[in-house]
Design a protein around this nucleic acid. Structure first.
Lengths: 183, 183
DNA sequence: CTCATATGAGACAACTTAGTCTCACATGAG
DNA sequence: CTCATGTGAGACTAAGTTGTCTCATATGAG
């Protein structure tokens, strides 16, 4: 199933022949476990979400100081980059009601860590949480892609991403710092 | 052709029937202008790149101070979100040698703006340029998606993205500031 | 009006893919 | 060994997609 997720992450329109070959099994065997392509994608998506959820749960981030939790969070998620890519890139998944629950659980778990960091003053409070979440997701994806392409050392990924997320690429002090710059 | 780009951005595996319908023409007419699906995708990709290039050229960012150029850059690119999504999401495009030249021109133009900002001290200098570029692209994509989903006001997008890119979400001063934190 | 041109609708064949089924083979328990 | 179980290979059908073609129609120039 992880092979399926990987195959679909590489090419969302991969045929079942491709998936079977990349999983090292026959196409018939694939059909014995998943009655249809749709079911395979759904199950692989669900599996990816469950794996992510367990990976998150296992780290018990709530025991860490919020800024440490943030950095260790990106470190914990980077190895799951291909699963994340699969979940983000396969369009059939986004409109799959049966995954909504699992997706909500993962999102909520991530959000809890982000919001705690925000509430405890590590992250600024004047931005909508949706933007915070979208930014985190996008940077995580960028980091994984960079590692996969060899542009970023795997061991640097967590630290680099953490630093970019917190401080961006600018050199100066945060201009307005409290509020959006008055125009 | 912009309709084709939009259709493929929504669903990279859209059939020619879908594309034709979303463009408001018959499938036969589509074939009269593009002899094959492959050619259609290639031409639409090339068109998107050319449009992006011209949009960038028209703004003459080199006339602006680097930090102003950065903010106006994200403002200039946000309206082209669907073209960007098309270029990023359609996997056939990434392995299309005939687009390499145009892609390189666009990338080079973006990079020039980013690197100028870096060289003049607006952006920090201790990060690989590939990471700078990947981050910019990812945040741009995130901003466009947020706007499309209604999570972010279109008028705030450029300012928000610019601020996030420069200063991130953290509240504190950039910890190490000159070098990677010693471990 | 007349005619050239462009278009949409639809028929058609070739190809790919999904899903089902059968058969031969390997493996492991008894 | 014997047999049940799981697997891979391959045949087969149904459906969808692509690419080509024909024909009727609309539009605009002359």
């Amino acid at each position: 199933m992880s092979a399926a997720a990987r195959a679909f992450a590489v090419d969302p329109s991969a045929s079942l022949v491709d998936v079977a070959r990349s999983a090292g099994v026959g196409r018939a065997t694939l059909h014995r476990y998943f009655s249809s392509r749709e079911e395979l994608i759904r199950e692989a998506g669900l599996d990816s979400l469950v794996q992510l959820e367990q990976a998150l749960k296992a780290h018990r981030f709530e025991r860490l100081a919020p800024d440490v939790a943030l950095e260790s969070l990106v470190g914990a998620l980077t190895p799951w980059g291909d699963r994340l890519r699969f979940l983000l890139v396969v369009s059939e998944l986004s409109q799959e009601p049966s995954l909504k629950a699992a997706e909500a659980r993962v999102d909520e778990q991530l959000m809890r860590i982000l919001l705690r960091a925000r509430d405890e003053g590590v992250l600024r409070q004047d931005l909508p949480s949706a933007w915070l979440f979208a930014t985190f997701e996008a940077l995580l994806y960028a980091a994984w892609t960079s590692v996969a392409q060899g542009d970023l050392a795997a061991n640097d990924a967590a630290r680099t991403l953490h630093e970019t997320l917190l401080h961006g690429h600018g050199t100066g002090r945060p201009a307005g710092s409290k509020k959006a710059r008055p125009r």
